[in-house]
Write a protein that binds this DNA or RNA. Structure first.
Lengths: 304, 304
DNA sequence: CATGGGTATAGATATTACCTATGACTTCTC
DNA sequence: GAGAAGTCATAGGTAATATCTATACCCATG
């Protein structure tokens, strides 16, 4: 087998491509220009190909160099991932961990589980980011976050998920609403009732519509958060579906709204943890999800 | 950023995992046991994790070690691919090149194009492998071959393709066959005619059936090669569709069979070159396909 | 408890990675 | 155009490290 290049050499040619000059690239990787020069030369010898065109105004990659560059980048990130995965495997859920959470979960879940999480994983530094599902998926793919709490089902390429807990939907309406007289509801009761929902982009909107297969949304109004949503319901703009987790967290306390569960089988959404396929921290993501499930089960809600 | 391991170290831990013992692994990578021992120790220091359980009867990877192993393998093959891609980019279509070809193309195409290919790419060493499409795809995915000539459309995960030329289907039957009286045929003429085809697994069978949307295959007989197929047609067992390339190559010469083209738009299959997605030699595969197309166009068939 | 299979340690040596100093060559500037 | 200011390449010395040999150690097993 022909000799392999060094990761160092790959790092060097990446820097060279990025800075377009031996001297500046050398500076960027903290070596002198002759060192980098020699390293690139040896890399070319190993590969048997000229990778760089040296000119008086800097260096430009040859087509072969571009091909190598692309693969070198891959090798480097894989190697970095290996380090992260190893550290994570050795001491799971320690160090910085960037977790994305969708806006219809974050404000209700986090206060409830963060203290216990910190207790269970004292070495973790959780960085939280609240955003819509699609943007969290982008962040996962671009490695800006390590994992995300989202609502399933949701299917996206390059993303894997692990179910954590089922979040039941509850019907909420003003007291004088026709359906508020019933103790429990069936999804079919909503066929004639245009629902007031969150604005487009919130997965809760889609999941709520899916829950009452025949239902529809009010097209004239939409809320930007669950808090504004309940206020809009209160002012008589319509009825809605709320996740139990938000209700348990006190979302409708002292609002004077009527809240009704659905007949079994209850409708709702599944909350799960998601990570980029192949992520170095997928095991930790699963562990974190399981820990949250545990915490939710042992410490029931402090709601009304 | 924390320090990266060396490719050498990754190679070492892969060998260690494969041999289960420092001494034997060291032998396998041509270093002494203390060298490998020290290297693994340093790798563990870099990753901050114990990767190997040292026992009196050898070494076993810890769970963290297993996680590292898997990624180390990936990094190593990516690095090897980089070398291959660089060499290929520097001097395309030179050195050993393993090409798979399906059985309904190989015997008719290769004699026609191999001499010209050798002339055009004098430094290439073509290793040919004749097999069914599915097995060629497996071989591509497992890196046992670099590219394959197959019939499209065919869709398989991890495989990319590039069209090379269109191979028209011709109708072939014994002289006394009812349809042999027509000068040209429409695909619909075959609705009532159960065709004699190759046995299952040959893509030509599926593509021929697809060509005459309403047609069907004889279920009692099937041929194992185009040569036996024409003999079976000759003995009156039925009619069939043959690729023009095979006819041009003399498949039915002196067989006394009637061969008819279809009305435009002609039916047929597309021949293309396929490679594993991300393969180091995809550019060469495309170049090879284009070269074959060229050769076929400039040097028309020597058939009847 | 000696033996044999295994790994770790110590010390010497060969390799190589890197630095400093300098040279050769372009391109821009006046 | 001559000089200045870039560029990359080369040479030679030094420090770091990769590797080897030799040996110590550890533990199962007969």
């Amino acid at each position: 087998m022909s000799q392999l290049p060094t990761l160092r050499q790959l790092q060097f040619i990446i820097a060279l491509a990025e800075h377009g000059s031996f001297s500046r690239a050398a500076e960027a990787v903290f070596v002198t220009q002759p060192t980098l020069s020699a390293a690139i030369k040896e890399l070319e010898a190993i590969l048997g190909t000229v990778l760089v065109e040296r000119g008086a105004r800097g260096a430009v990659l040859t087509p072969a160099g571009e091909a190598v560059l692309e693969r070198a980048r891959r090798v480097m990130t894989e190697a970095e991932d290996l380090v992260i995965a190893a550290q994570a495997a050795g001491e799971p859920l320690s160090g910085p961990f960037k977790l994305g959470v969708i806006p219809t979960i974050a404000p209700f879940l986090l206060p409830r589980v963060l203290p216990a999480l910190r207790e269970r994983f004292p070495d973790i530094e959780l960085f939280l980011r609240e955003d819509l599902t699609d943007r969290l998926f982008d962040a996962l793919r671009e490695r800006r976050i390590d994992a995300a709490l989202i609502a399933l089902p949701y299917d996206a390429p390059m993303i894997e998920t692990h179910a954590v807990w089922a979040d039941e939907f509850l019907f909420a309406a003003p007291p004088d609403h026709a359906l508020a007289r019933k103790k429990t509801l069936a999804p079919s009761d909503l066929s004639e009732e245009p629902l007031l929902l969150l604005e487009d982009g919130h997965c809760l909107r889609d999941h709520a519509l899916a829950a009452c297969a025949t239902g529809s949304a009010r097209s004239d109004f939409a809320a930007t958060s669950l808090h504004t949503l309940v206020h809009m319901v209160k002012s008589g703009l319509g009825a809605t579906l709320l996740p139990r987790m938000a209700v348990d967290a006190g979302l409708v306390d002292r609002m004077g709204l009527e809240v009704r569960p659905f007949d079994p089988p209850v409708v709702g959404r599944e909350i799960g943890v998601a990570w980029r396929k192949g992520s170095a921290r997928s095991d930790e993501a699963i562990q974190l999800g399981d820990a949250i499930r545990d915490i939710l089960q042992t410490a029931p809600s402090g709601g009304s």
